[in-house]
Structures are given as structure tokens and as C-alpha cells.
């Protein structure tokens, strides 16, 4: 039983530290939001990728970066209605 408790505690620590660490009740919304935000932050963080997209879109890199970060705010859109 102590082992199980420790596992849970470890998992909780991981979840607190690394956003997006899943759990048994991860919803589709959480998962997709997470993937989207990870992707956008990766686009912003890899300079070649950002400038590749900037040239594709015909916008400066700085505007591209802001656009990506704005999309991170939005995530996967509004969360689904919860039925209580």
C-alpha cells in the first residue's frame, strides 16, 4: 500500500513539474490543448522552423512568434461543457 501511495505521490510531483504529464482521467480537451501548446512553443523555440513559417506566411519572425504565442493562449478552444 505504501508503494502505491509513493507512486501516486511521484506522479503528482511529475504532474506539478512537467505540464502535460497525463493521468487516468485526462480528457481529450486537455490532451489536445497540451499537444497544441507544446507544438507552438516548439515552433517558437526552434529558430529555423520559425523563420521557415515566417517566409511561408510572408510575415516577419517577430509577428509570427506573437501569433504562435497567442495561439498558445487559445489552446484547443473552449473546454467542453461539463455535466455535473
Amino acid at each position: 500500500m505504501a508503494d502505491k501511495l509513493r507512486t501516486i505521490q511521484n506522479l503528482e510531483a511529475l504532474q506539478a513539474r512537467y505540464i502535460g504529464t497525463g493521468h487516468a482521467d485526462t480528457t481529450k480537451y486537455e490532451w489536445t490543448s497540451n499537444i497544441l501548446r507544446d507544438s507552438y512553443s516548439s515552433y517558437v523555440g526552434h529558430p529555423p522552423l520559425l523563420s521557415y513559417m515566417a517566409v511561408g506566411m510572408g510575415e516577419p519572425k517577430e509577428k509570427m512568434r506573437t501569433m504562435m504565442l497567442e495561439k498558445m493562449v487559445r489552446g484547443a478552444g473552449n473546454p467542453p461543457e461539463t455535466q455535473e
Binding site: 512537467y18 505540464i19 502535460g20 501548446r37 507544446d38 512553443s41 516548439s42 517558437v44 523555440g45 526552434h46
Partner: peptide
């Protein structure tokens, strides 16, 4: 390059 690892 991760979302929550500093460096950006």
C-alpha cells in the same frame, strides 16, 4: 526545446 524548460 520544451515549453517549460527555460532558455527562450
Amino acid at each position: 526545446v520544451r515549453r517549460v524548460v527555460p532558455g527562450q
